[in-house]
Each structure stands twice: as C-alpha cells, then as structure tokens.
Amino acid sequence: MSIENCSPTGVDINQTGFGYTLSLINGKYKMIIMYWLAEYKPVMRFNELKRCLGTISFKTLSSTLKKMEADQLIIRNEYPQIPPKVEYSLSERGKSLIPILDMMCAWGTANRI
C-alpha cells in the first residue's frame, strides 16, 4: 500500500484509513493500556491499570477506557457482586492493532537518538 492510497493529497485526513487508525490509538494512554493488556496481563481490573500507568487520574483513565470500549478495542466485563468487580481485556479488534504497536516499538528502538 502506498502513502498516496492511504492519505491522498487534498483529502481530509480524518476521512482516510490512516486518519481513522490514528483516531483509535491517539491520546496519551490508549496505546499504553493496549500494550499492558497484550504483553503483561490479558485481564486487568481498573485499579491494576491505574497502578501500572502511574500518574493517570481516575477521571482520565475512566474516560479513556469508555472511549476504547466504544471503539470496540477493549471488552469491559462487570460482575454483579459487592463491591463491584470490573475487568478489562483486549477485544479481537484491539488485538489486531498489536502488530502495529509492536512495529512502532521496534522502529523506536532502532531509531532512538
């Protein structure tokens, strides 16, 4: 696939496949959340993710996870118990983005200045 096919000149980037992909993975934490779920622990609870991400606020993590669920990148499983138990995992759609994240990681390692 060439760049011309992915993001042609004169076309709004948001209307291209490239722009759509970027819209799914943009943001400070989305790729990191996906990476944690793919590489370290396939099912994580909210507070586990919060600890792994460090400085993220409760509100930011909550809204990021809601966006990722709406984009069908993650699956949210809520268990009816007290206290409530909610677990997050990658969906098949989310898993399909992992090779792209792996390539970004490899590129960064090879080209780090």
Rank of each mutant, 00 (worst) to 15 (best):
I3H: 06
E4I: 15
E4M: 14
N5V: 12
C6F: 12
S7N: 14
P8Y: 06
T9P: 06
V11Q: 13
D12L: 13
N14V: 14
N14D: 15
N14M: 14
Q15W: 13
Q15Y: 12
T16D: 02
T16W: 03
T16N: 07
G17D: 13
F18T: 03
F18G: 08
G19P: 09
G19T: 04
Y20P: 02
Y20I: 06
Y20H: 13
T21N: 11
L22S: 02
L22N: 06
S23T: 13
S23V: 12
S23W: 11
S23H: 05
S23M: 14
I25F: 01
G27N: 01
G27T: 06
K28N: 10
K28R: 13
K30W: 02
M31N: 00
I32M: 15
M34W: 01
Y35I: 08
L37E: 00
A38P: 12
E39Q: 10
E39I: 10
V43M: 07
R45D: 01
F46S: 03
N47A: 12
E48Y: 04
L49W: 00
L49Y: 00
K50P: 09
C52E: 13
C52A: 11
G54L: 07
G54S: 06
I56D: 01
I56Y: 03
I56N: 06
S57D: 09
S57Q: 04
K59Y: 06
T60M: 04
T60L: 03
L61E: 01
L61G: 01
S62R: 10
S63N: 14
S63H: 15
T64A: 03
T64R: 06
K67C: 08
M68R: 01
E69R: 09
E69L: 04
A70E: 15
A70F: 10
D71W: 00
D71Q: 13
L73H: 00
I75V: 14
R76T: 13
R76G: 05
N77M: 09
Y79I: 13
P80I: 05
P80F: 08
P80K: 04
P80Y: 09
P80T: 04
I82D: 03
I82A: 11
K85D: 11
K85V: 08
V86L: 10
E87K: 05
S89D: 05
L90P: 00
S91D: 09
S91T: 12
S91I: 10
R93S: 06
R93F: 11
G94K: 01
G94Q: 01
G94P: 06
K95Y: 02
K95L: 11
L97D: 04
I98T: 00
P99K: 06
I100A: 05
I100L: 15
L101R: 02
M103N: 04
C105S: 04
A106W: 03
